[in-house]
Design a protein around this nucleic acid. Structure first.
Length: 263
DNA sequence: ATGGTGGGTAGCCCA
């Protein structure tokens, strides 16, 4: 069994103790982190080393964005792509070398896209759409069994948000983003593990805004995803969102996703 | 309809 997790941590240095708690309690073999907000040189390597996560691939950036994949089973870096061509660190791909040998684990942090869902008024929204189109072209050529995980910053289904109608014009749930994400989905025949294991219309949110969480109205969205090649999806046994982390002190606004595979 | 909170960094950007 190989257990793989993904978590937008919103600063790995600030929340390293929470990461350590999560690794101790859930014991994933591989953890993909997004929004580490630091460079490789200032990544808290020691804490991961002490917990047995001796294999690490960090695509970092000072202050913003940044992704890292840490593992207690052997991995090697396969790629780091820049789908915006602007130097932001939003992707790293690794290949498993021991258990699950040959599986690619692609860790991505898709741009949030700003506040206005109009590329003429908001360049960041256009960059998000372009990022998705370039990812789709990348996925066209994938030949190896692949697991694509991360913060996609899109909640595609009606049941992926607390109020579908109210959010149709809110970036993360607009039809144009969902169409672009659909083209990425079709490019490889990805299986959405979140909905394979927790079928619609069941609620399974992965993110709650810091600005609204105190209201205790459960105004969440499913922004984080794990998508698998069909044969990889068929090997998935369990899948869960670890919602408890959102109630820890000074939490990330995202919660981890965890999947177990027979590989 | 609005503003609400959080992180990194150093005079605002990003989410």
């Amino acid at each position: 069994m190989v257990k793989i997790a993904s978590w937008n941590i919103n600063s790995v240095r600030l929340r390293i103790d929470q990461v350590a708690r999560f690794l101790t309690e859930e014991a994933p073999d591989v953890l993909c982190l997004q929004e580490i907000k630091t460079q490789e040189a200032t990544f808290p390597h020691e804490a991961f080393e002490a917990l047995g996560y001796t294999h690490r691939v960090v695509h970092g950036q000072k202050g913003y964005h940044g992704v890292a994949t840490v593992s207690r089973i052997p991995i090697k870096e396969a790629s780091r792509r820049d789908w915006q061509d602007n130097g932001e660190a939003r992707h790293v791909g690794v290949e498993l070398l021991g258990p699950g040998q040959g599986l690619l684990v692609e860790n991505v942090y898709i741009p949030a896209g700003g506040d206005i869902p109009d590329r003429a008024l908001n360049p960041k929204f256009g960059q998000k759409l372009d990022f998705l189109e370039r990812m789709a072209r990348w996925a066209d050529d994938l030949k190896q069994p692949t697991l694509l995980v991360g913060d996609f910053n899109i909640a595609p289904l009606e049941c992926d948000v607390y109020n579908h109608k109210a959010l149709l014009k809110v970036v993360s749930h607009t039809p144009i983003e969902i169409e672009a994400l659909g083209r990425l989905a079709d490019a490889h025949g990805w299986v959405d593990l979140g909905r394979k294991h927790i079928p619609a219309p069941e609620r399974n949110y992965s993110w709650w805004s810091y600005r609204s969480y105190w209201r205790e109205k459960d105004q969440g969205r499913r922004l984080d995803h794990m998508w698998a090649s069909p044969e990889v999806a068929a090997a998935s046994q369990t899948h869960s969102f670890v919602e408890a982390t959102r109630r820890w002190d000074q939490p990330s606004d995202h919660v981890p996703l965890v999947t177990e595979f027979t590989l």
